[in-house]
Design a protein around this nucleic acid. Structure first.
Lengths: 281, 281
DNA sequence: GCGACTTTGTGCATGTGTTCACAAGCGGCT
DNA sequence: AGCCGCTTGTGAACACATGCACAAAGTCGC
């Protein structure tokens, strides 16, 4: 979550818990050459890809890969949208954010779409992953075939438990968490996965950041504090279940055994979020 | 997102993004049409709560529980929002969806808030969980302490592997997936967790539905088809990493030495997201 | 009881994301 | 060539979510 506080306004305008209703003078905009990347320039917004669309692009990529393996050469937005579980208009709009690679009257070339989505998602480069906390979940993550096969090689593992140090898990020897900074720097880890107990998560996070990690996927049920140069996504399994619980309760409260089918909405499945997570959330 | 999302993340509609991204999450809740004016409070209110707010309520609940353990009696929206990583206005709006339980000039009673959020999320009732696919991830989930401690007792485990049948994992004996329908009915499982390889996911899902499961948390990277009486949330680890990858790429493009790859302007992602996803190049 | 102070709850403006609906563009057929 | 049917790409309407800012409503001290 974005818990970085102030960022608006160029001036620091400390969120003085006190009063201060002095609105910053709002310096004459005139964006000129100044170009300060920390300022959300409105003009760049136009080129922004919505967060939700990014999440879906990753899903399209997976579906397209499966189609390519089946020897499919081209695909229409309708076919692809059904396979991905979204509606076709949304799919076309999502694809339009990355460019115009379709042929009207025909559809999209599967290979082209795969290349372009990979380019946008930054998958042309490998991203080293470090997993911290080699408990049940960490073990599963270290052995998870879906990571390396999609361009995310796991290159470092960490834990506090002395009995685990040096033991190979999924082909990688476990290091002590005190070595996070050194090892992550050496191996140029760009993504850190936190699978530790909640109490240790923030400390681990700090070390990962110090070790140069740019992104963190957090499985611990805590809100992490990070500098705004670092990206955090969280996956909270308990929260996911609670959201499901809410829907059960809502349904139970309402109509009893009368499943209302309102003409619209077939089995839609969506992501997130992304939020979430999602392991998100 | 989002986290979502996904979420966002995630499940119906969403991660966001977030989700873990699980992220994601968000599309309109398909509302049942049955409108019974005699059932006012709970249902109408529940129906009015935005999807994104539900995800956050679960987070508030966790934070509140921690505060209660520390003996905290009351809390202000400001304190709670900081602990949860959101801004205070959003937090108050989220809480307002479930009713007015605060005292102006004072804050909220921790105990009251916990009770009310639990009520809204349907946590006053236990939800039995079944985990299908006892591989690395399934093992981790079966042993995950976060489930039972939050009202989600794991009461059934399934796998295809004959060597696993009967073996207790986390205190529960593994059953064969052919018995999903029977066992889920007997034990009144309301939430199914799919941690199988992608190829088996849809078949497993169908059996869970047949066994009376109302909600599914899907870790397999496939889009499940279910009747609209069933709620699905998905957690796709590869997608989460790809979303992070996207942000790394954007940041590198933008702030870095401007690699001016090809004429196509590099899209910039703007910030947003539950799940804490900040972006900002 | 009164005024100063604190904090909730919410109307409103803004920003994001989704959906509709259709013009534009392409291939194929005659 | 000219027409026809199919599919993309997108403008515009709509729906949802966020954040600001402030009145309402309570506490506290005197």
């Amino acid at each position: 979550m974005a818990q970085r506080g102030q960022r608006d306004g160029v001036g620091r305008t400390p969120p003085a818990p006190g009063d201060a209703e002095i609105t910053t003078p709002m310096p004459a905009v005139t964006d000129g050459a100044a170009f300060d990347p920390s300022v959300p320039a409105a003009r760049d917004r136009a080129r922004a890809i919505p967060e939700a669309a990014v999440a879906r692009l990753a899903v399209y990529l997976r579906v397209l890969s499966a189609m390519q393996e089946q020897g499919l050469g081209t695909v229409s937005s309708e076919e692809l949208s059904v396979a991905a579980g979204v509606n076709s208009a949304k799919l076309r709009k999502d694809l339009s954010y990355i460019g115009s690679y379709g042929t009207r009257g025909v559809g999209y070339e599967v290979a082209v779409l795969i290349d372009q989505i990979e380019r946008i998602l930054g998958l042309t480069r490998k991203h080293s992953v470090a997993v911290v906390g080699i408990g049940n979940l960490g073990h599963a993550l270290a052995n998870y075939g879906g990571f390396p096969s999609r361009g995310f090689p796991v290159t470092a593992l960490f834990d506090v438990d002395a009995d685990l140090i040096g033991i190979p898990v999924g082909g990688i020897a476990v290091n002590h968490i005190d070595d996070i900074v050194r090892v992550c720097s050496e191996r140029e880890v760009s993504i850190g996965v936190i699978a530790t107990p909640p109490a240790a998560a923030q400390a681990v996070c700090d070390r990962l950041v110090e070790g140069g990690v740019e992104c963190i996927l957090n499985f611990a049920p805590v809100v992490l504090q990070v500098p705004d140069t670092v990206e955090v996504r969280k996956v909270d399994l308990a929260v996911e279940l609670q959201i499901l619980s809410f829907h059960v309760a809502r349904r139970a409260d309402g109509a009893g055994p009368a499943p209302q089918v309102n003409g619209v909405a077939p089995p839609v499945l969506d992501h997130r979020g992304m939020d979430g997570v999602v392991i998100r959330g």
